[in-house]
Design a protein around this nucleic acid. Structure first.
Lengths: 211, 211
DNA sequence: GCGAAATTTGAACGCTTAGTAGAAAAGATG
DNA sequence: CATCTTTTCTACTAAGCGTTCAAATTTCGC
């Protein structure tokens, strides 16, 4: 545990032997996310993770402080790819409708292609302890509040109905998108963009054409 | 483990000492659901469950085969309160719009007031093993198919838009309702009926009033 | 109250696991 | 090749857990 930052990939660096991935924090986190997603945090041992990477347990502890830190890192990667793009959408010069559309597309995309990490994110939060657990809750709330802002903005502008409480709408919306991580298969019939498009239509105009 | 059926509550039966609940399968399942919901299945020990009921670990084994059976029973209780009412709605003499509305109300209500069990239901399925795990998956699918039927019926009747794939709509819909178990507080601002009403409006006509 | 049946206790067992320490190996450097 | 650093392995510890079971206790019909 010497370098906390991943070394930047530089062209001239000697490549590791093909076949076995270089053991690194990022690699561990990815492998662990896949196992946690399949069997759950509690049911996955460090031996399982190590074995799945062709390595023994001891090696993991050189790159990672303990089991919970692996979980923490999974949560962080999800937040890192989620937060900033959403913030940009909210702050952009767009109509509320456009913002909402892009926000849904964004969130759907994240849910679709980070699925192991996302599954863990929505299932294993109880296993976080200490201040970090609180931090995650806060950042989740902040993320929700971005969506709320969009909805409220739309209501103020008279574009969205004013009789639907923004909080509930947002919860419903996010629940809708989050469900993707449970069922979405990248090799299935629909791309995440197509799914997002369906959700956008649903949320904007509903299922009934001649209201 | 002698009686599989709960004895019916009969008036003249001697009440157990107030304060301590009579130890029974149902009581164990309820207590366990609360603990599992808070800390997760893997992180909750049988000691935790026993202690929370003012009893020792061994006593649980008189009423329950093992830890996983407790989990199985939690899943069963959720299914039991969910399946039949939905089936009745689907088979009733109602318009697709009415059916959809009632189905959403039903599912929302279940998500709202069985919340510990529901949280476990949507989080701990990975810890089920053997044929029962498969059974749950199947029954979940069947439940989804009821919703799908309603949507398809509505499309056929020209009431719902035909360009939105029923499967995706249903997943979104259920994700929306299921999210309730994560955030709904019975003592909060909204009743589950009010939340359901919001969801129904969202799904039927969307957020935009003048489409 | 008595005896039998139902229920609970408490201790023990076997197994798995997170985490540690130090030796060994591999890799880089000059 | 020799030395130093980084990385991995082996072996171990201490703790926690699910499960079992004989004995103790409580309940209940008579």
């Amino acid at each position: 545990m010497v370098q906390n930052l991943e070394k930047l990939e530089v062209g001239h660096k000697k490549e590791a032997k093909p076949g076995r991935v270089r053991l690194t924090q990022k690699a561990i986190v990815e492998a662990a996310a896949a196992l946690f997603a399949r069997a759950g945090f509690g049911a996955t041992s460090l031996d399982d993770i190590a074995t799945s990477m062709g390595v023994t347990k001891g090696a993991l502890y050189y790159h990672v402080k303990n089991k919970e830190e692996i979980l923490r890192l999974i949560f962080l990667t999800v937040l890192v790819v989620s937060e900033e793009p959403l913030q940009h959408i909210v702050e952009a010069e767009l109509s509320p409708v456009q913002k909402l559309g892009r926000a849904i597309e964004h969130h759907t995309a994240v849910a679709a292609d980070r699925s192991p990490a996302m599954i863990v994110f929505y299932r294993e939060q109880v296993h976080l302890t200490g201040p970090f657990a609180r931090e995650i809750t806060l950042r989740k709330k902040k993320y929700e509040r971005y969506f709320e802002q969009i909805i409220e903005e739309g209501i103020q502008a008279g574009i969205f109905k004013s009789d639907l409480p923004a909080k509930i709408v947002v919860f419903g919306l996010l629940g809708m998108c989050n469900s993707l991580s449970q069922w979405y298969k990248p090799d299935g019939k629909f791309s995440s963009q197509q799914v997002a498009a369906v959700f956008v239509k649903m949320v904007e105009n509903g299922l009934m054409p001649y209201a």
